[in-house]
């Protein structure tokens, strides 16, 4: 069990009564959520429940239509300046990795630090090598993503996000596209990251990860947050019937 060391109780993400529609379809309904610095939150729920959409709203890959989202004291609006500052503070890891296939692993990691943050190339390279070492693939730095296994690609994707030195990391089903034997290496990397005190929001079906790492588990269904609790109570003592049903479906096999 990872110990819960909170640096402060300041909220780094504050979502208030947020709604989102895809066309006329109401995907997110009245979402309110506060995330404190260093907090690790796992979001689960059946497919189509809006969990991915929720974390994609936090770095505005999806635009919400009602309510407020405040990240690092900056409100998410159409203002490009705010958006760029938020995006360089919020890292994201995708289900399908989304590495840039025409760039080497190292270039994948250094591109944004050099051009977005203005880091000198030498420093960016050193930083990238340091982080690639942390995800345990420094020897692959000069290869192209297409030459790596899925698990390795996802670890590169994590390193690429960390190269921007984000304050918050979002994970959108990071292990769902992986073969079973590769899930562990990615989860281990995420656990190590959690131990450094990174604020993390993770959409995942890996309940073992949630039990081990999460400070708080959220269950979503049909666009609503149904239940939020610490992992112990969430798994042993779910209150809502839908949560119980969901847990019985994913845990009993």
């Amino acid at each position: 069990m990872v110990t819960n060391k909170k640096n402060s109780s300041k909220s780094v993400i504050e979502i208030r009564e947020m709604h989102k529609w895809f066309g006329t379809f109401h995907v997110l309904k009245n979402i309110s959520l506060g995330v404190k610095q260093g907090e690790r939150i796992v979001i689960c729920g059946p497919s189509g429940s809006g969990k991915s959409t929720l974390i994609r709203c936090i770095n505005r890959l999806e635009v919400h239509q009602k309510g407020d989202i405040i990240v690092n004291d900056v409100e998410l609006t159409g203002d490009l300046k705010n958006l760029e500052s938020i995006r360089s503070d919020v890292g994201m890891v995708f289900q399908s990795f989304n590495l840039f296939p025409h760039l080497t692993v190292l270039e994948n990691c250094t591109l944004a630090p050099i051009w977005v943050k203005g880091l000198p190339k030498k420093e960016a390279n050193e930083l990238a090598m340091e982080l690639l070492t942390r995800v345990k693939i420094p020897e692959q730095a000069l290869k192209f993503p297409g030459q790596l296994s899925g698990g390795q690609q996802q670890r590169v994707a994590i390193a690429r996000s960390l190269c921007m030195q984000p304050k918050i990391m979002l994970f959108d089903e990071p292990t769902s596209a992986l073969d079973p034997e590769m899930i562990k290496e990615v989860l281990d990397t995420m656990i190590e990251l959690a131990e450094t005190g990174m604020t993390m929001l993770v959409v995942t079906h890996e309940m073992g990860f949630a039990k081990k790492v999460a400070d708080s588990v959220i269950f979503m269904d049909e666009g609503e947050i149904i239940e939020q609790n610490d992992p112990k109570n969430f798994f042993n003592n779910p209150k809502n019937d839908r949560t119980k049903l969901f847990l019985s479906q994913i845990l009993n096999h």
């Binding site: 760029e84 989304n98 840039f100 051009w115 921007m164």
Partner: peptide, 15 residues
């Protein structure tokens, strides 16, 4: 080009 490429670039703060 897959949509994910643009999302990754956006998420990294690229304009």
């Amino acid at each position: 080009i897959p949509k994910g490429q643009y999302e990754a670039a956006d998420a990294l703060g690229m304009n």
